[in-house]
Amino acid sequence: MAPIFSSHFKSLGRTPPSIVFAIFCLALFGLITLFVELDLIATDYRVTHYSQVYLPPSFEFPMGTDFLGRDMLSRALHGVSIALIVGFLSAFIATVIGLLLGVIAGFWGGLWDEFIVWLYTTLDSIPSLLLILALSFVLGQGLEHLFLVLGLTSWVSLCRLIRSEVIKQRSLEYILTAQALGVGQIRQIYYYILPNILHIALIQFALIFVYAIKAEVILSFLGLGVEPGEPSWGVIINDAKSELTQGIWWGLFIATTLMFLLIFSVNLITDFMRKKLDPQYHSSH
């Protein structure tokens, strides 16, 4: 794996405190997800208390209760796990597709290139919101459909960047030398190309991660999010649209706060990575 982490990553240099904070937050969210998935914390997120609905935050319910008297904190923590899963898997699917197609198009060129460029130009020409909505309507709701839809519709910009970077790299001296030395194509990609494009993939991964988590909220508004009854942040925020006027702010508050912390951390890190790793990051947008 050594060559993958090339000189780019060594240049990260001194880590500012904001990044330390962001990494700490992400680690915390990771831990929460782990514990939630192992049923160690927030196990009572489905337990209803019909006589204790819409309780404000108290010692027993630190973030109050919802319309069925369920512990809001537990539900929001479950939301952490849903958000991380949606964000991570969407970004993973998109990155794999984008990276694969981008490298193929850039490295081999020719008909492959023509086809892949055509494919992403086509997808890019359809307003993404419409594409997502249409796919969601076809597949129906549920966590697995959610990240599939978001992953399948968000790989285009990554693919385009990777492709042009690979084309650039391919014509560089050292690749030409490697070719002349008879290094196999797969080896060329793995040892020489991949390390030099991975930072792009990483940054795009983070962008798609954030995008997917935000998109989940919008899809929930349209009833296209996770399986109904599961406490995603989108669902919690949507419930708040009628609750706020009667002073029930805690659901909105906890979901927005957690979401803010997660996305802000990822944004900070992305921004940092861009500055350090990507000499021409404006072109990525």
């Binding site: 909220v217 942040w233 989108g234 925020i237 909105l252 927005t256 803010f260 944004n267």
Partner: peptide
Amino acid sequence: WFCLSLMSVSFLTFII
């Protein structure tokens, strides 16, 4: 930080 904060809140939250 200011810009990133604005970007870290859901559109729906802003509207509500």
